[in-house]
Design a protein around this nucleic acid. Sequence first.
DNA 1: AAACGAAATGTTATATTATAACGTTTTCAC
DNA 2: GTGAAAACGTTATAATATAACATTTCGTTT
Lengths: 158, 158
Amino acid sequence: MSGLRIKYLKPALVAEHLARADALCAATGARLTPLRRRVLELVVRSGRPVGAYELLDQMRACGHKGAPPTVYRALDFLQQQGLVHRIAMANAYVACSHPGCDHHALIFVCTECGNALELEETQVKASVAARAEAVGFRVPGQPIEVAGTCPLCQEGRP
Amino acid sequence: MSGLRIKYLKPALVAEHLARADALCAATGARLTPLRRRVLELVVRSGRPVGAYELLDQMRACGHKGAPPTVYRALDFLQQQGLVHRIAMANAYVACSHPGCDHHALIFVCTECGNALELEETQVKASVAARAEAVGFRVPGQPIEVAGTCPLCQEGRP
DNA sequence: AAACGAAATGTTATATTATAACGTTTTCAC
DNA sequence: GTGAAAACGTTATAATATAACATTTCGTTT
């Protein structure tokens, strides 16, 4: 991960994302508390996978006195609600781009810049499911991470 | 990960695996030193994904005075040679089941027992490649991790 | 064989990521 | 209001991984 292109989402898109989260949680009875909502907002605003301690620093920069468990608990909740995905290969967390739907099957992660692209997808999902069935594995609908190089980083731009 | 079934490979299979590694490294000029070979042997013998510190403990149990970098460097080398895969979701390392071929495309990882199953695969690989091309991502041939539950763990056996 | 440079290994310290454990506060149902 | 459960605060620590630099080994050249 060399040049970490910063990529903040437009405020309007952030607001829209949060509103959708509000609606989803209201529908399921899950409690999107101010703290959890704040963490989600930070993840959404980043527009890319961010580390837990990065989020913690941002919380602190905004005056919040928090420790790691604060962030990790919020992230756990957000993952359970399908609002955030954990990218294992990057030890990072990214906002789900289609919360509410469970079409999300594929996340391309750029090993150069750290950005990620989540796709709605059926073909890969289907072929994985077929293969899983063949060997007796049961696979839940979690997104699949694929490492690669994004278009921008392929052009030599760091 | 509840019941961690122990699953040691038969000595004959371990020897065969190591011999193949010897041959591959001899062919490419890579130096499979005693230390690296020892680490590979431990990974192969485990027959499942193992943590770096687990390997370190085994090294120490056999009288080797080593520190983390020792194991991590050996693992880095083995990964470069395609002899070992890192399972990011488990922070663990597993022997490649088809070293030398690059058919490996898919690794099912059981979140219950921690075992993994590596498959030679073309369908998933092809659909991922198609999707990657559509969005401009370049994806190297690294195996794809898929979390799930293995047949044994589905039967209630921990 | 001696000397050199590069690769590998040893060693110490520390960074990074994540969770355990327990106390306090808030929230909600009754 | 009261009690139980959920959420949050706080401290400490576990688990994973790497930085930095010294030493040794190895292959090559002289």
